[in-house]
């Protein structure tokens, strides 16, 4: 892989020879390969888009990088900054994964996992609070993000369980963007947004990139992809199911 312009700087994320399959014990142990020999790097300030047809393993790669999926082999090396020591998230030590999630990797999933009775504002502020930021400061920042995403103020203090899909998604985005994790994983963040909010998200992504955040994302939305992508990786190249 070419590293010409980044020669002196280390990648924040290095995925090396990663393979992943599922063994379905409830289906007589049938093995479903997902990806093989995944290799790529992600540097500060770039937005790498995982491309390829549906079912090729894009979301699986995001989940492996976030530690939701265990990998069969290979390494997923994470650095907190370009000069930091790499730590192997792929080894699967739960405490390391938790540390890396707290310090290095943010994640905006497709769906918000709503917690009963916790307000939208608190859900957004929580990643900051858990990193020791003062509650009021975190809440102010959360409110700012939600306002920017045009979430009606009346909803701030309500639990998002009853929100519409787009409203939930905006809460989810705000929660993912509130921290300054060096690596940010985006799984179709704009899927259920209208054009206006989509543009807000695009500018938020650009601001993250300007600040040096490394972004790895899946965007089915062509205009968003064109607006933010600095590089595209075709996941089909890694797909273990190409033959299928």
């Amino acid at each position: 892989m070419s590293v010409s312009s980044n020669e002196k700087r280390n990648a924040l994320l290095s995925v090396r020879q990663v393979a992943k399959s599922f063994t379905m014990h409830l289906r007589d142990g049938v093995v479903l390969p997902v990806v093989n020999d995944v290799n790529f790097e992600l540097f500060a300030g770039e937005c790498v888009v995982l491309g390829g047809p549906s079912g090729v393993g894009k979301s699986s790669i995001l989940r492996m990088v976030y530690g939701n999926y265990a990998i069969d082999s290979g390494e997923i090396l994470i650095r907190q900054n370009p000069f930091g020591e790499p730590r192997d998230l792929g080894a699967g030590d739960p405490r390391l994964v938790l540390d890396l999630r707290r310090d290095c990797i943010g994640y905006v999933s497709q769906f918000l996992r709503a917690v009963p009775r916790v307000s939208a504002l608190d859900i957004v502020a929580e990643p900051l609070v858990s990193r020791g930021v003062d509650r009021t400061v975190a809440a102010e920042k959360a409110a700012g993000l939600l306002r920017r995403l045009h979430l009606p103020e009346a909803l701030f203090d309500l639990p998002p369980a009853t929100f519409s899909g787009g409203e939930k998604q905006r809460v989810n985005i705000a929660r993912g963007f509130i921290t300054d994790h060096p690596i940010l994983l985006l799984d179709e963040p704009t899927a259920s947004l209208d054009a206006g909010n989509r543009d807000v998200v695009i500018s938020m992504i650009r601001e993250k990139l300007d600040a040096g955040t490394a972004i790895l994302g899946i965007f089915h939305d062509q205009p968003v992809r064109d607006a933010v992508a600095t590089r595209t990786i075709d996941v089909s190249a890694f797909s273990a199911r190409r033959a299928a």
């Binding site: 599922f22 530690g67 939701n68 999926y69 699967g92 938790l98």
Partner: peptide, 8 residues
């Protein structure tokens, strides 16, 4: 990790 065990 709880979400790893439940998701995978």
């Amino acid at each position: 990790l709880t979400d790893r065990v439940l998701d995978d």
